[in-house]
Design a protein around this nucleic acid. Structure first.
Lengths: 368, 368
DNA sequence: TTGTACGCGTTATCAA
DNA sequence: TTGATAACGCGTACAA
């Protein structure tokens, strides 16, 4: 006796009382009377590779089932196989209390598509919550547990994202984003959608229109402007800088007087971009009301997106809806492709045109 | 030559093109001129354990920083025998399209509490979606991937749950449930809440009231009845079976005539239980309206729960709100305790009393 | 104070 | 067809 007994479970804290350890492949092997490697082979169920006798196969499967065996994702990951786990990391709470920027519609699509493809989801509790990811750079490193990760929200730290991308870790960002070179993303096709809205107005007979936008350089904004201008071009209408009104504070700068001035110049339709705050749209509605305009009789209004929640009761704006659920699905689709080592799928998702009630034919020209 | 060269990275598929391997502790160690174990010690930064010379410490930290070292979560978890992962398994889609039975409020609490405690969440794509869990009972086995799992929804298969519980796998069910012996759950304290509602009515002066309930034996129903009867007792009011009206189809059985009969008998307040369909409350509102009752002048109404979404516009019912967010948090709290090998925490969460607008003093007694 | 050795659970290769 | 075996990256007991 006294022989140096094997060190008990080194590297592990003692198992909690009453807790039965999950069965391992080794245990399944013992029950089936085979080696652990055989278990691995059977469970991998590869087409190629060494064939296994049906008899052994069944024994192993039965043992695994009866023991409730489930592969350890960490070990699997370590051995460079896959998890069937897709990560979701948001930089605000994934389920925010303020419904304002709720990811719910995205998640519907994400869950559906992930289920479809046999993936489970890992929700990494974001940094904002002060949760698991509060501390430093390792916060983002956690996502490497999954086979790939989806990022939501504007405040993704470029450095860390770049690192993941550089390491070849499959990453998809929700929303167009150029910042870390080579970052994959899915986003709404604002260019086409804005283009379509302009086409709709032009078809109604509008010859001059103005885009109201805020003063930032977010891709979502520039895309809309781009689509707006392209729409004018397609319709053979005059473009140029004077068709875009840009203001850091539309509520202040978009006065009823200015609106009247445009009208006097022959402008008959106004298009506002959508932003988080909805400032442009709000200002436009306000100015039109203050100017005593009856919409759409006196002028047509359109919104490049969906109205903010608090304006949901008002008349349905002509414009388009962002297909959030389909965006979520598209993101998962792309992520799955990257995980599989395939090419990234189509990043753009079409928006749904919304006829709405704020546009109509331009007013008949009075006077001569 | 020809000596059997070391097999290149066994156990791994070939690294995807362009993929740079991240630095490992071993590499940090080389750069710092120490052993890998020392790197691990320095990075762990434990209070106890072997002390490290400040000199070495700095060299290691510097090397780690300059190489951009990030620990591999999979390896870390493999070594630590813990995931920091809590599972969430729902038997309907976790993010249903029909807002009717949305788990959103629960998830808010779940996410918040999980983040607080440093856990990430695994959303197991449920069986209903035909997703990863479509196949038979083994679907549930997947949850063993996490350190513990939360179950949502009514249709949890008892067999499989029992299996998990028997194996000592930490499981918490959302909603009271006795079925698999030893299953842990968290639920709303309907008994106290119903008790409080009765107390409120009694304090207003009501001496006789009737509970309208459907004809099932769900814990949520019996708890409410129990609380209702206890409330009567506390208030010193007559209880007994005639104070409970039980019907499999309240819409049919709860006629205006019956209501008038009760009123004639001196009943001045009616309490409806809440169910998925809201049938009892609907029938009560309908009968009161048909009987030409002005509520709360002629009679007081109360609802043991929250009104169904389609009745949200109506007058706010006296009753209580189920604290779903806090329930989610409580579930995570209990699950975390079980994972840590501690005792289960308090399963009951208090409901929030809602004064509402459907109750008031009983009508003055006319006649003599 | 630091280095050596081992095991966590898995996959993949190779020899039997 | 199956069983050893190496290795993934990290944490820790133990020896130096």
């Amino acid at each position: 006796m006294e022989e140096p007994r094997k060190r008990a479970r080194p590297g592990r804290s003692p198992a909690p009382a009453g807790r039965t350890a999950r069965p391992r492949q080794a245990e399944v092997a013992r029950h089936a009377g085979v080696s652990q490697a055989t278990v691995s082979l059977v469970l991998a169920d590869k087409r190629e590779g060494p064939a296994i006798s049906e008899e052994t196969r069944q024994r192993v499967l039965e043992a695994a089932r009866s023991l409730g065996y489930v592969p350890d994702p960490a070990a699997r990951r370590l051995a460079a196989a896959r998890n069937n786990l897709l990560g979701v990391f948001s930089f605000t709470a994934t389920f925010p209390t303020e419904v304002q920027h709720s990811y719910y519609p995205f998640l519907v699509g994400v869950e559906r598509e992930a289920a479809e493809r046999g993936y489970d989801l890992v929700l990494f509790t974001g940094s904002s919550t002060g949760g698991a990811g509060a501390a430093g750079p390792e916060a983002l490193g956690r996502v490497r547990l999954a086979d790939g990760c989806l990022f939501l929200g504007r405040h993704a730290p470029v450095q860390e994202l770049a690192r993941l991308v550089a390491d070849g870790f499959p990453v998809v960002h929700l929303g167009r984003r150029d910042d870390p070179e080579g970052l994959h993303w899915v986003g709404a096709d604002y260019v086409s959608a804005a283009h379509e809205v302009v086409g709709h107005l032009a078809a109604l007979g509008h010859r001059r229109m103005v885009l109201i936008r805020e003063d930032d350089e977010a891709p979502a904004s520039t895309d809309r402007e781009h689509g707006f201008l392209k729409g004018l071009e397609t319709a053979g209408l005059p473009g140029g800088p004077e068709t875009v009104f840009r203001s850091a504070d539309p509520a202040r700068d978009l006065t009823p007087e200015r609106l009247r001035g445009w009208l006097a110049d022959g402008v008959t339709a106004f298009v506002a971009e959508e932003t988080d705050t909805g400032a442009a749209w709000r200002a436009l509605l306000r100015a039109a009301a203050d100017a005593g305009l009856d919409c759409p009789r006196d002028a047509s209004l359109a919104l490049l997106g969906s109205p903010p929640a608090d304006l949901a009761d008002g008349p349905e704006p002509t414009g388009f809806d962002i297909p959030r659920t389909r965006l979520g699905a598209a993101a998962v689709r792309m992520l799955a492709a990257l995980v599989a080592g395939e090419e990234a799928t189509e990043p753009l998702v079409a928006c749904a045109f919304r006829p709405g009630a704020t546009s109509g034919p331009p007013p008949a020209v009075h006077g001569h």
